[in-house]
Every structure is written in structure tokens, then in C-alpha cells.
């Protein structure tokens, strides 16, 4: 996946730019990473995604500065109140402040999304590299196992495992998600490694006696880093949707922990849905904006790492 110097000067069809400006001519002296970074920063949507995502991350980190209210504290005298000066988005069915829940809820969405992605990545890279590097029997064994896990719809398998554990915690939830969604990523990484395997530098590394471990870590992973980062990014967006979806149906992060999915779950009550749009639209928009900006970043990274692809 290392972009060639020729590839670097290719015109991005989405945002046309002069093909032979000064920077492009001196591009031979830049590392592939610097080139990718420059292409990424030229992508307007990706930069917009970074800005929006950073804003959301900052709001979640500094949530205590933005509100004095405790997102888990119920006030039974103020159930389903409309917006007021004290509660700008009103209160929920247990009298908790919706604005505080919105801010603190972004923490859970981001942390769960990120850690589930990281865990999936570890499983995916480990199994994918073993499968792609060794090939043969090991490969077909791992691939048959991914086929088997993929034979069950992801959500159905995840819910089944959730039903098997006595109580669900955030950490356990992350594990269950990662343990049911790894096959997709594993397949992608295996595919990349299979094509790397046939290249001469691997033969060269083997000829000078490099160990399998060294070849995988020093030669395969750095060369596959583009697709790995891109897929990890897009996967994080998917994880955020999954977490909120499961929390929405009451099978995710347990109450009273605030999450965007938990907040939307209240809108299943037709009374709240009809009378209190200020309670459920903001968390929905929160999920939407977070996922959209991560997807923009992911697409920007894909174009940056692989300038020849113009798939949209």
C-alpha cells in the first residue's frame, strides 16, 4: 500500500487542484506518510470531520465545566419537565437533567466505540496476520471459523451472548461486541497480507533469516497500515451505532449510566416522543454527527493512503 511517487501527483477527482504545483514537484523528497498527511489535509470533508469530532471530544472531556448537574441524579419532583432555565433540555422520565446526560453520554459513546474498535483490531490483526502470513491449513481453519461466526447475523449473536451472561457491565459489553464483530476486519487484513506475501521484499527478508514474527511486525503491518487505519476508523463509527442501538433497545450499557442510546430509548414512549422532542433529538443528532464525522475522516484517510482509489 505504499503510494508510489507517481501516485502522489495524481489528481483527486473530487477536489480538482493544479496537478504540477511546487509541492507536487518536490514530492520525491517527502516520506509516504507526509504525502498522505498532505492529501488528507486537502480533503475538506475530512478536515470538517476532524473539527466536528474534536468539538464533541472536547465537550465530553469538559462536561463538568459545561454543566453543574449530575447526569445520574434523579429528582422525582421533576419528571419529564420541558425546557427551563435550569434544565435547558428538560428532564427525563426519572427526573434527570437531559443536558447533563447529553454531555456525559458522549463520553460513553466515544469510549465504548473506541475500546470496542481497539479490541476488535487486536483480534483482527492477530488472526488476520496469522491467516494471511502462513496461508494453507491454518488459513483455511481460521477462515472457516470466520464463516461460521458470520453465519449468524451480528446483532442476533451479540444479543444471544448478552442473554447468557447474568449481568452486563460496560467492560463486558465491549468484549461481547468485539467477540462478535471481529470476522469482518480479520478478512480484510488477511486479504491485504495475502497480497503482500507474494512480494519480493518478503522473500528478501526471509533470505536474510528474519523470523516470522519480525516479518509480520516489521514488514507486513507497516505496509498494511493504511487499510488497517482506514478500516479501524470506519469500524469505530459502526461500533458507536451498535452501542447506541443496543442501549436503545435496553440491552446495552445499563441505566443509570447516561448514553445517547439510553436517552433515545425513552422516546419509545409515545408521550415523550410527541411532547418532548428536545429530549430525544439532541442525542440522536449527537450519534449522527459523531458517526458522520468519523466516516468523513475514514474516507479522507482512504483517499490519502491510496490516492488511486476514487471510490465513494
Amino acid at each position: 500500500m505504499q503510494p508510489s511517487p507517481q501516485g502522489a501527483t495524481e489528481i483527486d477527482p473530487v477536489s480538482p487542484q493544479p496537478p504540477l504545483d511546487q509541492n507536487a514537484r518536490s514530492s520525491n523528497s517527502k516520506s509516504p506518510f507526509q504525502l498522505a498527511l498532505r492529501r488528507f489535509l486537502n480533503n475538506k470533508l475530512a478536515v470538517l470531520g476532524i473539527v466536528v469530532l474534536l468539538t464533541i471530544i472536547l465537550a465530553s472531556i469538559f462536561a463538568p465545566l459545561l454543566t453543574d448537574l449530575d447526569p445520574t441524579k434523579s429528582d422525582l419532583m421533576k419528571i419529564e419537565n420541558g425546557p427551563s432555565s435550569e434544565h435547558i433540555l428538560g428532564t427525563d422520565g426519572s427526573g434527570r437533567d437531559n443536558f447533563a446526560r447529553l454531555l456525559y453520554g458522549s463520553r460513553i459513546s466515544l469510549i465504548v466505540g473506541f475500546s470496542a474498535m481497539l479490541f476488535t483490531l487486536i483480534i483482527g490483526v492477530t488472526l488476520g496476520s496469522i491467516s494471511g502470513y502462513y496461508g494453507g491449513k491454518v488459513d483455511s481453519l481460521i477462515m472457516r471459523f470466520t464463516d461460521l461466526v458470520l453465519a449468524l447475523p451480528f446483532l442476533v449473536l451479540a444479543l444471544t451472548i448478552i442473554a447468557l451472561v447474568p449481568t452486563i457491565t460496560t467492560a463486558l459489553f465491549v468484549c461481547i461486541i468485539a467477540l462478535t464483530i471481529w470476522p469482518n476486519l480479520t478478512r480484510i487484513i488477511r486479504g491485504t497480507f495475502l497480497s503482500l506475501r507474494e512480494q519480493e521484499f518478503v522473500l528478501g527478508a526471509r533470505a536474510i533469516g528474519a523470523s516470522d514474527f519480525r516479518i509480520i511486525f516489521r514488514h507486513f503491518i507497516p505496509n498494511a497500515i493504511g487499510p488497517i487505519i482506514v478500516n479501524a476508523t470506519l469500524m469505530m463509527a459502526q461500533m458507536i451505532i451498535i452501542e447506541s442501538g443496543l442501549s436503545f433497545i435496553g440491552m446495552g450499557i445499563p441505566q443509570p449510566t447516561p448514553t445517547w442510546g439510553n436517552m433515545l430509548s425513552e422516546a419509545q414512549n409515545i408521550r415523550i416522543l410527541r411532547n418532548h422532542p428536545e429530549a430525544w433529538i439532541p442525542p440522536g443528532l449527537g450519534i449522527f454527527l459523531t458517526v458522520l464525522s468519523i466516516n468523513f475522516i475514514g474516507d479522507g484517510l482512504r483517499d490519502a493512503f491510496d490516492p488511486k482509489s476514487n471510490k465513494r
Binding site: A237, I241, S244, G245, F248, I249, L264, A267, I270, L273, R274, P277, W280, I281, G284, I287, F288, V291, L292, N295, F296, R312
Partner: peptide, 26 residues
């Protein structure tokens, strides 16, 4: 189309469903 593609993949189906109920049913 591209714009719709981004929106369609970023909006969770349950949120879309709630909006649809809010607008078209209620």
C-alpha cells in the same frame, strides 16, 4: 447521491424511525 449515501450510513435506523414517526405519524 453521495451526500445521501453519507447520511444514510451515519443515521442510526432507530433514530430515523423515531423521526419518521414524529413527522409522518404524529
Amino acid at each position: 447521491t453521495t451526500g445521501f449515501g453519507f447520511l444514510g450510513l451515519a443515521i442510526p435506523n432507530f433514530f430515523f424511525g423515531l423521526i419518521a414517526i414524529y413527522i409522518f405519524a404524529i
